[in-house]
Simulated assay, not measured.
Amino acid sequence: MKLLIGGYTKNTSTGIYELPVIPTQDKPGLQLGPAKAVIKLGGPTYFVQDGNLLFTIKNAGDQGGIASYELSQGKYQAKDSYLTAGSSPAYISLNRTQKLLYTANYHTAVLAVFAYTSSGSLTLLDTVTHTADTLGPRPEQSDGPHPHYFDQTPAGNLVSCDLGNDRVDFYQLQNNHLEHRASYQNEPGFGSRHLVFSPDGAYFYVVGELASKINVVKFNEQDWSFTNIATYSTIPADFTGHNGAAAIKISHAGDFIYVSNRGHDSLTVFGVKQDHTLELRQRIASFGQFPRDFNWDQDEKYVVVANQNSNNATLYLRNSEDGCLTPLQKDVSVPEGTRVLFAE
């Protein structure tokens, strides 16, 4: 097992780094070894893997887009790229079964669907551009729509989160064409960023970057009905500094939800009750500045968070009974990290 961390390349980072995951000798557990640059490219702020193929955001000066790499004989080889003028996307996800990629571009407001082959070749299938229909009141929303997430739903549809419009939009891909199906509107100034679904597919939990909140929503993918259940703060009520909630993850069993807080510099842990409402279990420091992404291993036993502004990562042990995190290793050096992914 190994860990991949990538992010911005504005200062010292050169792309995507690999960190070995090493069993400790004196006690059960793991530690992270030194980070080594394994893919050199601009701005790999988000990436995903399908076997030996890796698909990443790519910034190439006045162009932005995505690129594919193949791991062969221990090295990543560039396979293909799709670049257009302007900013690169903020998010990329994949459908391994149908070999599709989905991207959301925060700056250009474009959602895109790509097909990929087993050799890593990329083909654009369709795009949709969000319009300024329901812009929120905050300064970050004044310049237009900002889709920050585009991924699959439990029933095989697609869903995006738009920070500018405070909105969650649902699509179907029919004959390689995106068709809008429904929208769910968050409160003004929420800043809809990312979401996760309950294992039964009947609820989603959307994190608001600008409001530092999680909204619990019951929904039905057959008739596209939505019920607002409850909303919870990811930061303490007495915190007065600036914060932007970022990544959200839900455990495989659906019993715990985790959110990163950039500004409060913490991870917040919620327990999920039987009725899908939440209860606060823990807020723990990220031991760095501006934690954006975090992730866990396949068994959800270990969690790693990357601190973008302090150029370090933190490793935690996760308790599956109460969901809480215990730090195992701090100050793991890795530059400008915004994406964390465990890989075999």
Rank of each mutant, 00 (worst) to 15 (best):
G323R: 11
S212C: 15
V113P: 00
A35Y: 03
L54R: 00
S118D: 15
T117F: 03
N311Q: 08
P236V: 01
S286W: 00
L280F: 06
D26M: 09
D223I: 09
T153Y: 11
N309K: 12
K79E: 10
P147T: 08
Y17W: 08
P34T: 08
R281I: 03
L71R: 11
H130T: 05
Y232Q: 07
K10C: 11
F287H: 14
R96C: 07
H252T: 07
G241H: 10
Q25T: 10
S160W: 04
V110Q: 14
G61F: 12
G189Y: 06
L341V: 15
R292G: 06
H276Y: 08
A60Q: 15
I235Q: 03
S142H: 12
L111R: 04
D80E: 05
N228C: 12
I39R: 01
L315S: 08
Y102E: 04
F197G: 04
Y82P: 02
P20D: 13
G64C: 09
N11I: 12
A155G: 14
G271W: 02
G263I: 00
N309Q: 13
F287S: 00
H252W: 02
T134N: 15
Y116T: 09
A109H: 06
S260H: 01
G51S: 13
A247W: 03
G15Y: 10
A237L: 09
P139R: 06
D80G: 04
K330T: 15
L19A: 03
E18K: 14
T231M: 09
A90T: 09
H276P: 02
Q98W: 07
L278S: 07
F190V: 09
Y82T: 02
E321Y: 09
A253N: 15
L328W: 05
G7Y: 05
G42K: 10
L158V: 05
L71Q: 10
Q49P: 02
Q298H: 13
G271L: 06
T231D: 06
P199N: 05
Q172Y: 07
N105V: 10
Y91D: 12
G156R: 08
T129V: 15
Y8N: 07
H148K: 03
K213W: 06
F170A: 08
L328H: 07
D200S: 10
F150K: 01
G288W: 06
S119E: 14
T117K: 07
T14A: 14
G323Q: 07
T227C: 08
R292W: 12
K79W: 11
G241I: 07
G191Y: 01
P44F: 06
R138P: 02
Y149D: 05
L54G: 05
F190M: 11
T338C: 10
